[in-house]
Each structure stands twice: as structure tokens, then as C-alpha cells.
């Protein structure tokens, strides 16, 4: 077995190019995330792989095997939906056994495999329950067990955590990653939450208006965004023309807030920028500052909290930035 190859995949709805000539290769066993703002085409691309949205052009292969013309039910995919989609007419065990029965797995084998899958998602002993007796988090675990148990070629997740509360979201995402790694099944995960994407993924594909904006490991996308969109989407940043930092080149650069410090705490080699604090926001562990430079541009920076640290609005300060963290964006 090998990974997933997507070549030139496109899909148009009316006048909307939901997915626009996407080329991607996902490695076997990789945890791959499609990230992007609402309406950028993540779900459409995922549904193309699953077989629910036909391609207008391009192709999708699992290894050597072309699958984009196959009907959805023979593609060997485990899909986890945002709203769980647990069958209300079947028990928990019935839900998990559903795909095994469809594959005509011998009856004697089904019971143990269902139990094993339920144990993996920490629902051992819940097989006899009815879906309406479970919480949202438990339902999502059933949905995951149901997708895992068939040992599919690929697991597809469409915003599986967005209906859960914030705390559960954080613990479930690391569980999902741990499960995926222990089983070695390739996973494609859709989310619009960049923090979630960074925390679970081996690699991220950032999408915008149906196109791939940038593909890379989380650190790379965060630290070396290729475009202004990527720089802004991956976290707060200062997007300025290079001239504002006293550089000559006519380009835009991205400088993350954490690359800025007050001059007195910065190494000597860092360029200095005089300015004044125009806004500040104390968030506990960190304080966010807006500093207006002499040329009028406003730089965002963050300070880690420290005892005795006092910053006031209007205070005149000198900033310094780490030149190695400056990224030119297109």
C-alpha cells in the first residue's frame, strides 16, 4: 500500500470554483490536514476523495489505483463527520459492526473486533447502549471506532471536533492522533482551526479560494509563510512593507509578534525601531501591545508576564526585532 495522489482535481459549483486544480501527495501513514477559512473548499476536496462529490477534472489515486471513478461504497474509506452521523436505529455495537457486515466479515470475528475498536476509543462495555444514551463526545468516539474498525485505506475527518466543547476538543485531538499513529492508517483531516491543525498534523495544506496556498510541516508553515494570506491565517503577525522596517527592497514581509522585544532586552545585532505604545491588553501569561512606529505603522508584539513589569499606554519605547525571523511573503 502507498499514499494518496491527487492530481489537477477541480470542481465548480455554478460560478464558484470550490476546488481549483489541486495537486497533492499524502504519504502512507501520514496525518495530513486541510486547513483554511470557511468556504475555501476543504470539505469539497475531502468529499471528492470520499466519492460524494464527482470531479470535473483531474484524478485521485490510492497508490497506483485510480479511485475517482469508483462508487463511494467501494473506495475503502473511513469517514468521521462533524455531526457524528451515528445511526440512531442501531446500538453502539451495531454502529461499529456496520462496516464489517457490509464487508461480509465472518460473524465470529465481528464481536471481538467491535470490542477491540470500542476499547481503543475508551468505550469498552458500551456496545449495548443506544446512541441517544451517549454524550456528544461519546458519540464522536463511536463514529471514530466505526471508521477505524474496518481498517480503511484512509481515514477522513471533516471538522470532527467542532461540535464539542473547548476542553474536550483539546483532549480528543491528541487521542485521534495517537490512535492514527498506532494503527498506521493514513488520515486526512479538515479543520479551520490553525491551532488544532498545528497540534495534530504531520503536514498541513493551507487552502484559499479552492487553491493550495502552501503545503508543509506545521513549523514551516508557521515560520516561513509563503504568502500574506498564509502569514495572517497561521497566527497574529505584522505584515508590513519592508520599507517600514528601514529596508530598501520593495517587498512585503511578515514578522511575528514574538520576534519583537524591547531594545534593552534584545541582543545587540537586532535592528532597532523607535515608537510609542498605543494599546495594550493584559491576558494573564502574556500581554499584547500595539506599538506605533515613527513612520506611522503599528507593530504588534507580545510580552511574557514578569514580576515588576510595567508598561503603559503612551509610553515611548524602542523595539528590536530578530532579523532571522523576517519572512518575505508574496
Amino acid at each position: 500500500m502507498s499514499g494518496i495522489v491527487i492530481a489537477g482535481a477541480s470542481r465548480t459549483f455554478g460560478t464558484v470554483r470550490a476546488v481549483d486544480r489541486v495537486d497533492l501527495t499524502v504519504e502512507q501513514g501520514e496525518f495530513f490536514t486541510l486547513l483554511g477559512p470557511s468556504g475555501c473548499g476543504k470539505t469539497t476536496l475531502l468529499r471528492m476523495i470520499a466519492g460524494f462529490t464527482p470531479l470535473d477534472a483531474g484524478e485521485i489515486r490510492f497508490g497506483e489505483r485510480r479511485i475517482d471513478r469508483l462508487p463511494a461504497h467501494v473506495r475503502d474509506i473511513g469517514m468521521v463527520f462533524q455531526n457524528y452521523a451515528v445511526f440512531p436505529t442501531l446500538s453502539v455495537a451495531g454502529n461499529v459492526a456496520y462496516g464489517l457486515k457490509a464487508r461480509r466479515v465472518p460473524a465470529a470475528e465481528i464481536g471481538p473486533r467491535v470490542e477491540e475498536a470500542l476499547a481503543m476509543v475508551q468505550l469498552a462495555g458500551y456496545g449495548g447502549r443506544q446512541p441517544h444514551e451517549l454524550s456528544g463526545g461519546q458519540l464522536q468516539r463511536v463514529a471514530i471506532a466505526r471508521a477505524l474498525v474496518i481498517r480503511p485505506h484512509v481515514l477522513l475527518f471533516d471538522e470532527p471536533l467542532s461540535n464539542l466543547d473547548a476542553r474536550l476538543r483539546v483532549s480528543m485531538r491528541s487521542e485521534i492522533r495517537a490512535l492514527q499513529k498506532s494503527l498506521g492508517i493514513t488520515a486526512i483531516y479538515v479543520t479551520h482551526d490553525q491551532e488544532e491543525a498545528m497540534s495534530v498534523s504531520d503536514r498541513i495544506a493551507l487552502m484559499n479560494h479552492g487553491r493550495l496556498e502552501q503545503v508543509g510541516v506545521p513549523e514551516e508553515i508557521y515560520r516561513k509563510p509563503a504568502t500574506r494570506f498564509a502569514a495572517e491565517f497561521m497566527g497574529t503577525t505584522n505584515l508590513v512593507e519592508a520599507r517600514a522596517l528601514g529596508l530598501a527592497a520593495p517587498v512585503w514581509v511578515s514578522l511575528r509578534p514574538e520576534a519583537l522585544r524591547f531594545a534593552e532586552e534584545a541582543p545587540v545585532g537586532w535592528p532597532r525601531l523607535p515608537g510609542a505604545v498605543v494599546a495594550l491588553e493584559m491576558l494573564g501569561p502574556i500581554t499584547r501591545l500595539d506599538v506605533k512606529l515613527e513612520n506611522g505603522s503599528v507593530m504588534k508584539m507580545v510580552l511574557l508576564d514578569a514580576p515588576g513589569q510595567i508598561v503603559r499606554e503612551g509610553q515611548v519605547v524602542t523595539l528590536a526585532y530578530d532579523p532571522s525571523r523576517l519572512t518575505v511573503v508574496s
Binding site: G51, H73, N83, A147
Partner: peptide, 15 residues
């Protein structure tokens, strides 16, 4: 919910 049907199809049942 349509996704119930899609879940079933993705698990290997024909439409």
C-alpha cells in the same frame, strides 16, 4: 441528516 447516508456508503453499503 444526509450524513447518516454518507456514513453508511463510506462504510461500504451501496446507495
Amino acid at each position: 441528516d444526509v450524513s447518516l447516508e454518507e456514513a453508511s456508503v463510506s462504510l461500504g453499503r451501496s446507495p
